[in-house]
């Protein structure tokens, strides 16, 4: 098995977008942990049903960082309903493929998004 990352994955790893933490976010979610070797922390701001801003922090490998970066880019500006439709296969495709043993990173990024949206909806309920 090889560990050949696509040029696009490397590009995103070396220059990730939407890095950081949003203050007073409308939702936050943590997925994974240090023991597994991958952890992502997401924060999100929503306005009129649209994702206004989304940021992440990562303790993870190159593809963990790249997949989180591309995921945040794809959903930023989208409605919550649109964001819910994003699946991991789209991320793999957009990165021109991932090494087989790294495909789980794309699943983790979309699982993180799901957890984030769930937290947003829960917080919205509480506000009501």
């Amino acid at each position: 098995m090889s560990l050949n990352y696509s040029k696009k994955t490397l590009k995103y790893f070396l220059n990730p977008k939407n890095i950081g933490e949003i203050k007073n976010p409308d939702a936050s979610a943590t997925i994974g942990n240090m023991v597994c070797g991958d952890q992502l922390n997401f924060t999100m701001k929503v306005e009129k049903g649209r994702i206004k801003n989304i940021k992440f922090l990562s303790f993870g490998c190159a593809s963990n960082i790249a997949t989180a970066s591309i995921m945040t880019e794809k959903v930023k500006g989208k409605t919550i309903a649109q964001a819910k439709k994003l699946d991991w296969k789209t991320i793999v495709k957009d990165l021109d493929g991932l090494p087989q043993q790294k495909v789980h990173c794309s699943v983790m990024a979309t699982d993180g998004l799901k957890a984030l949206i769930k937290d947003y909806e829960k917080n919205k309920e509480i506000k009501k």
């Binding site: 070797g37 991958d38 490998c61 190159a62 963990n64 960082i65």
Partner: peptide, 14 residues
Amino acid sequence: RNIEGEAILIDLSN
């Protein structure tokens, strides 16, 4: 501490 090994490796490799 607090950063991931493979990320270090790929970053250095670059």
